[in-house]
Each structure stands twice: as structure tokens, then as C-alpha cells.
């Protein structure tokens, strides 16, 4: 888990993407697009960067990941399963009545999930609160918050950005999954909040900009974020919505779409690396 090994992380990412597809299943809608776009970021966090103990999910010193774009939780479920928080077979129960894997993250149902998100725009504030608690307790854990780019239209994100800069929470790292798509189509055509990196800089954040599917770049940025003092860090990760499933890439209908049996099998084949 500590190894800075791109091949190792790519193999884990294939497991995460496969888990996303299995969690969606056949003929049931699921948030494929945004889960796939942040899958490599989530993989790098759980299998490289974060200190965490699957056998002790409440460990006081664990690093925290909050998925502010809660609809992409399938990526987190798959990563948690393959870290050992629960058996990967449980992924197929996602969204079934009574399942501990809900459509959006619920902290008291799923081991490893830190907060309740789903209504967008709240995760960065929660992450800030956790970072402030950690500072009061003189603990050195870090708090990672993954936000969607379309989510940045929520005003609360910028309230949180202001407050985090004011309180100098340098252990708070925001990662923007910048896939340039909102649920209904392409951001530049529909509703564009403008230059993301410049905005975070203007709010007092240290900003890094990377290819969110390049593991060498992802781990370099996550390591560089450790070096910040007195300033929160925003990593703008350029991604592709639906990444890894050819027929879903950049297709808005797969934001929350259903797979036919044929599409389901094709997606699994493409992710495994045969038939591409």
C-alpha cells in the first residue's frame, strides 16, 4: 500500500473500475460517469497516500476522505472493498433495500465512509471542520475532499474555501474532479463557473493542476500537498467522465445511466484490458 508503483496502482484502479460496474449491475441506473472519472484519484488515495487501517476504521490518526460529490461513491465503495473494509462481493448489493451500501455515502452504514454527502456543496465545509478538530487535538491526519467541477456552482463551496484559507488549514486538500461535464451535458456549453485554478488561488489556496488519470502525476501532487504550510491545497485534476468504458466516455447519459447485459460485459472486458 505504501509502494509508489504506477503498475501496482493501475492494477488497483482496474479492480476499482470493475467494482463500479459490478455495483451498478445490469438494467439498473447507476452513477457511472463521475465514479469512473475520479476512480484513479480515489485509488491513489486509498492504495498509496492515505494512512488508514481497514481493520480499525475509526482509528483516531487515520487520514480522511470525504467524497463531496457523493454520487460518485461507487468508486469509494470499490476501493474500500478492495482495501478489506468489507468483501468485494457486497458491492453487488449496492442500492438494494436494507443494504449498507446506499446510493449516496452514509457514515453510520458503511465502514470507512466519513460523512453523509449527496446534496452537493457540503463536503468541503465538513472537511474543514475535521481539519480544525485535528488541529485542536494536535493530531497530524490529513483530510482529502473530492469535489466535482459542476459542484463548484454551489456557493457553499466558496464559503468553505474562504474559511479554510482564513483558518490556514494546511492539512485540508481539495481535489477537483474536473471532467468538464455536468449531469445534463458539457459544462462549457451549459454553465461554466470559470477558471477554477485562478479562483482557488484568489481565495488564498495553493493550487496544483494535473492529469487526473496519470498516476505519476497524481502521487507527485499528493506528495507535494504535504509540503504546504499555512495554506490549504487544491489539486485540479483534469479527468474524463466515464473513463475506462469507451461507450460511456464523455456521454452525459451515463452520468446516471443503466447498462444492458451486453454493455455490462463489454465494460468489464475493457476494464480488464482485453478487447480494447
Amino acid at each position: 500500500m505504501e509502494k509508489r508503483d504506477v503498475k501496482y496502482l493501475e492494477a488497483k484502479a482496474r479492480l476499482v473500475r470493475e467494482g463500479i460496474i459490478r455495483a451498478i449491475g445490469v438494467n439498473q441506473r447507476g452513477h457511472l460517469g463521475g465514479s469512473m472519472s475520479c476512480a484513479d484519484l480515489v485509488t491513489a488515495l486509498y492504495f498509496y497516500k492515505m494512512r488508514h487501517w481497514p481493520e480499525d476504521p475509526e482509528h483516531a490518526d487515520r487520514d480522511r476522505l470525504i467524497l463531496s460529490k457523493g454520487h460518485s461513491v461507487l468508486a469509494q465503495y470499490a476501493a474500500l472493498a478492495h482495501c478489506g473494509y468489507f468483501p468485494p462481493a457486497a458491492l453487488e448489493t449496492t442500492k438494494q433495500l436494507g443494504s449498507f451500501l446506499q446510493g449516496h455515502p452514509e457514515r453510520d452504514r458503511t465502514p470507512g465512509v466519513e460523512a453523509n454527502t449527496g446534496s452537493l456543496g457540503q463536503g468541503l465545509s465538513i472537511g474543514l471542520g475535521l481539519a480544525l478538530a485535528g488541529r485542536l487535538d494536535r493530531r497530524d491526519y490529513r483530510v482529502y475532499v473530492i469535489l466535482g467541477d459542476a459542484e463548484l456552482a454551489e456557493g457553499q463551496v466558496w464559503e468553505a474555501a474562504t474559511a479554510a484559507a482564513f483558518y490556514k488549514t494546511d492539512r485540508l486538500i481539495a481535489i477537483v474532479d474536473h471532467n468538464k461535464m455536468q449531469a445534463t451535458g458539457r459544462i462549457p456549453e451549459l454553465y461554466d463557473v470559470g477558471p477554477i485554478a485562478e479562483k482557488f488561488r484568489a481565495f488564498g489556496w495553493r493550487v496544483l493542476e494535473i492529469d487526473g488519470h496519470d498516476f505519476a502525476a497524481i502521487v507527485d501532487a499528493l506528495d507535494a500537498a504535504d509540503q504546504s504550510t499555512g495554506q490549504p491545497v487544491a489539486i485540479i485534476a483534469h479527468t474524463v467522465k466515464g473513463k475506462g468504458v469507451s461507450f460511456a466516455e464523455n456521454v452525459a447519459s451515463f452520468h446516471n445511466g443503466a447498462l444492458t447485459e451486453e454493455q455490462y460485459q463489454q465494460a468489464l472486458r475493457e476494464i480488464a484490458g482485453d478487447g480494447v
Binding site: 465545509s125 474543514l128 471542520g129 481539519a131 478538530a133 468553505a160 474559511a163
Partner: peptide
């Protein structure tokens, strides 16, 4: 929501 985070951090 910051308060919620503080609570999740044990405050």
C-alpha cells in the same frame, strides 16, 4: 457543515 466536521472529529 463545519460544525458537523468538528463533531465527526470528536468535538
Amino acid at each position: 457543515a463545519v460544525a458537523a466536521g468538528l463533531a465527526l472529529g470528536g468535538k
